[in-house]
């Protein structure tokens, strides 16, 4: 243990030069804390942030126009508004057609500006707040979808990065934190789903042997899915695969290279299957998978960071 301490002291001094004079030999807890902090705050290329901004902000426009497109129609049925906790805790406006149309215009204009990397804070925060209200108006009518966790967090963490464009060189630690947040939210969408199944059914693996896919396919199965209702054992195998994958999903956060691409391919393949069989695509989570990959390597050479 003594062999490693000197080196760790040096690194922690480098990482936090203005740290108050602590114990000369940091405790194990302190070293763990430094490692956790370093993990949350990696340095990533600014151009990667620029790419992510373009993708996320353009996707938000697609989302409000074609995926969560019930907000303007909801304005015609305010009697069915059942505000979520956040809507009861904050004095948010009641749903109306005018409010929804205003939000739609502000989000689209804000996203078009922010996607270019201009006004990253002003446009970014405006989009974040308006998009959040849009989702609240969408999900406050008796049904909450949980495919939006990573995307709504993206709307709130991207403005904290400040300036970072596709053509920028250098790196950003603020961007590293934002991307970590997205990665953790993507994984939390799967791992949280496994824990939710445990909490709801009282046992960690009870869900695997249930009739949940039969239930889902009867209710909204596509023609590609309905044949499988005659083979419930096959559906149970599918449930077990999914449940185990959800419990193991945090491993993805610590994979690199080929293993990471394989892990991502598995979960993206899962989304393709649920889309083909149930019409559930989870695109808002899928687009945030981009936070795991060095997208700047796809840029033409003149844009590439050194």
């Amino acid at each position: 243990m003594n062999e490693g301490t000197e080196q760790t002291t040096v690194t922690s001094r480098v990482a936090a030069p203005d740290a108050p004079a602590g114990p000369r030999h940091p405790t194990r807890a302190r070293r763990l804390g430094t490692r956790v902090a370093d993990w949350w705050l990696p340095d990533i290329p600014r151009s990667r942030v620029g790419i992510m901004r373009a993708v996320i902000y353009l996707f938000l426009i697609y989302d409000i126009l074609y995926l969560r497109n019930d907000v303007i129609p909801h304005g015609y049925a305010p009697e069915l508004y059942q505000p979520l906790w956040i809507g009861r805790a904050l004095p948010l406006p009641e749903p109306s057609v005018g409010l929804a149309q205003t939000l739609q215009i502000v989000i689209i204009v804000g996203c078009l500006i922010a996607a270019t990397g201009r006004l990253p804070r002003l446009a970014g925060w405006t989009v974040a707040l308006c998009y959040f209200e849009w989702l609240i108006l969408s999900m406050s009518f008796g049904k909450v979808d949980h495919d939006h966790l990573a995307l709504v967090v993206a709307a709130f963490v991207l403005p904290t990065i400040g300036r970072a464009r596709i053509s920028d060189h250098g790196t950003t630690q603020a961007g590293g934190w934002a991307f970590r947040c997205l990665q953790v939210c993507v994984i939390a969408t799967y791992f949280g789903a496994a824990v939710a199944k445990w909490v709801r059914n009282g046992a960690p693996f009870a869900w695997g042997n249930s009739a949940v896919l039969t239930w889902a396919f009867i209710r909204r199965g596509t023609d590609l899915a309905r044949w499988s209702l005659d083979y419930p054992w096959l559906l149970r195998i599918g449930q077990w695969v999914m449940l185990i994958a959800e419990y193991l999903s945090p491993v993805i956060l610590f994979l690199r290279g080929k293993a990471l691409y394989l892990g991502a391919a598995f979960f993206l393949g899962f989304h393709v299957i649920t889309f083909l069989t149930l019409g559930i695509h989870f695109l808002p989570t899928v687009v945030c998978w981009l936070a795991f990959f060095p997208t700047e390597k796809l840029l033409p050479r003149r844009f590439r960071p050194e």
Partner: peptide, 22 residues
């Protein structure tokens, strides 16, 4: 899931009974 966006990921979380009703 009342605590959106930090609610439970509860879609399809209920283990439906093999001898139950849909």
């Amino acid at each position: 899931d009342d605590y959106f966006p930090f609610g439970s990921m509860a879609q399809y979380a209920t283990a439906h009974n093999l001898d139950g009703q849909t």
